[in-house]
Structure formats: structure tokens, C-alpha cells
Amino acid sequence: MRVLCSSATGLLVGWLADEGLGDPSRYHPVAGFGHVASALEQKTWRDQRAAGAAHVALLVGTTLLGGVALERLTLVNRPDARRPDPRGPGVLHLALTAAACWAVLGGRSLRREAAAVGTLLAADDLNGARDRIRSLVGRDPTHLSADELARAVIESVAENSSDAVVAPLFWGAVAGIPGLLGYRAINTLDAMIGHRSPRYHRFGWAAARLDDLVNWIPARLAAGLAAAAAPLVGGSPAAAFDTVRADAHKHPSPNAGPVEAAFAGALGVRLGGTNRYGDRVEDRGTLGAGRPVTAADIAGANRLAAAVGVGAAVLATLGAFARQRFLSERRPKVGA
């Protein structure tokens, strides 16, 4: 049976759009969601976990419902169809899947910002690098040395290769447009309110825990892809996997730990350490037994991140094809 897989093709086209164009420069949908979430927070904030959970449920639930509506409407291909039929033609569904995928991915922009900091470090412009890195990390860069800035960049590239590339593609393959939009809503809320500040210690608890949950599988997939791609940066898969097994648990994040450890092992460097976030100091343990990071390692981290993105795109395309083929075969035909 011939099946046009609009989900799989849409994910692939969306990933290619992100690789070719990067993030939209204006009217970014994720930024728009953030503005809505900030406005709603003015009414929902209470120093309570329950209030934070309601805030997350309302925003994520609304986003998911919108995604489900788009998925169902655009999969209908005949006026008399009682149910969505994923066998096509699905051109509108393909286009909306690609647009959603492009909007929620951030691989090219991530690597571009990392390279920009690397260029400033190579020119010994520490002040410029400290200012530019604020778009990548939440830690205070004011007093970081060149090598500490390089470590921060590589850790951000590793973690966000999972959060901004692998995870959206994974959920897009699993759940189509609702998966893409729902995941990005959860991840954005975690970035906004999931950190451990006095204001968000309770209110942001649900956002942080939900983000941990939806990233658990993608983070380990990203770590596996990084280990598999280690030879592209002069490393070995065995060293990367060994570093994940030995050190990932030292990181306070259950998902950033495996990915950062895999990058450390693949690049043959040492990541982790003590980071300052305003008045809060966090010990992230030592990830890897290699040499300390230098600015020259940023280029290798970017190559590794690009390879992880390629692997994730291939797997997501195959997974979405299998899912849509499975659904098409299970759904009854009209008039049958």
C-alpha cells in the first residue's frame, strides 16, 4: 500500500528549514507563547505548588488542544471522511508539521551563538564573550575566565542539543503536531519558572518536574547519538559511554547529566564544576576525565551537536513514518 507520510516529511522539512534558516528573526511563536505565559502569571502566581501546577496545566493543555485540532483538521482528506486519514494527500498537514517543527527547533541558532562566543574568545575579547554568552546560559558570567566561558558554552551546546533538537523531534515523531507544540510549551515554561529562585521555588515545581519527565527519553537518546558520533570529533563511542556511566549521576539534572557527560567523553575533555546563578551556587560534579576545556573545543562541540541533530532527524523521520503507517492501517475506511 502506497502511503504518503505527511508527518515524517513535515518533520524532515522542518528540520531542514531550521538548519538552513535558523530561528525566525521576528514574530517567533515561542516568544509569543512566552509573552502570554508572563501575562497569565501576573494573575495565577501564588507561592504554592498547586498554583504553579494549574498555571502549567492551563498553558500546556491549551497548547495541546490547539495542536490536536490542527492535526485532526489537516489530516482529513475527503469531505465525507468521518475520521482523519493519515494516508494523504496531506499537503496542508505536511506544511503545518514543517512550520511547527521549524518553530520549535533551535539547532542552528544554538551553534551560531556558540561559535560567536568562540570567535570573541579567540580574539581575547572577554567582555564581549561574557556579554554574548548570556543568550546561551543562565549562570553569572561576570567573573568567568576564558576557559570557564568555553566550558559554559560547551555545556549549553550539549544540553540544548537535547532540549532544542532531539526532544522536539522525538515528540514530533511520537505525537505529531501536538507533540511538537506541547513539548515546546513545557520546555519554555521550565525555562521561565522552573529554576530554583525564591519566587519560583514552589510555583515552578510542576514546570520543572514535567520538563524532567518529557526529556527523560530524549536526553538519553541524545547521549547515545553523541557517543555514536564521537569519531567525528576524534573521540571514541566507548569513552563517551564510559563517561556517561561513571559521571552522569553527579549532575543535579537527571537529563542534562547524561548528555553533558557524553559530550565530555566524546570530546576528551572535562566538564562540570561550580556554577553561580545570582546568589545561588551549584556544584555540578566533574564530568569526564579528560583535559580542561579551552575555547578551541567549541568548534568540536558544534560539530558533535550537528551530528546529533542529523541522527535525531533521521530517527524522527523513520519513527513518524512507522507511526503514521500504523495508524493508517488501523483506522477503518469510509464506507467499509
Rank of each mutant, 00 (worst) to 15 (best):
A95P: 08
S135D: 11
A223K: 05
W171H: 05
W45R: 14
N160D: 10
A229L: 02
W15D: 03
E282W: 00
V76W: 08
G278L: 11
A152Q: 03
V269D: 06
L21S: 05
H195S: 11
E282D: 12
V214W: 01
L327H: 03
A262L: 04
G257E: 04
R130H: 09
V165R: 03
R280A: 15
H35P: 00
L12V: 01
G278W: 06
V137Y: 09
P178V: 09
W15A: 14
V60M: 04
L210H: 08
V334S: 15
D279T: 15
A289R: 14
R202H: 14
A207S: 13
S25M: 11
S135G: 11
P231E: 08
E260H: 10
L64M: 13
G128N: 02
E41T: 03
F33T: 02
G176D: 04
A266I: 05
G300F: 07
V76D: 10
E19L: 11
R46Y: 00
P79L: 13
R245M: 09
G107K: 04
A37L: 04
L304N: 03
L121M: 03
A307G: 04
S236I: 08
R130W: 07
A185W: 00
R209E: 12
P79D: 15
D47N: 15
G272A: 06
V30K: 02
R196V: 09
A129D: 12
N255A: 08
V3I: 14
A256S: 15
E113P: 00
S236L: 10
Q324S: 14
R111H: 11
A50P: 00
L315N: 02
E41I: 03
A322N: 06
R220Q: 05
D124M: 00
A320C: 09
L225H: 01
T63G: 07
A226F: 07
R199D: 06
A39S: 13
L21Y: 05
E159A: 04
N77D: 12
P84N: 01
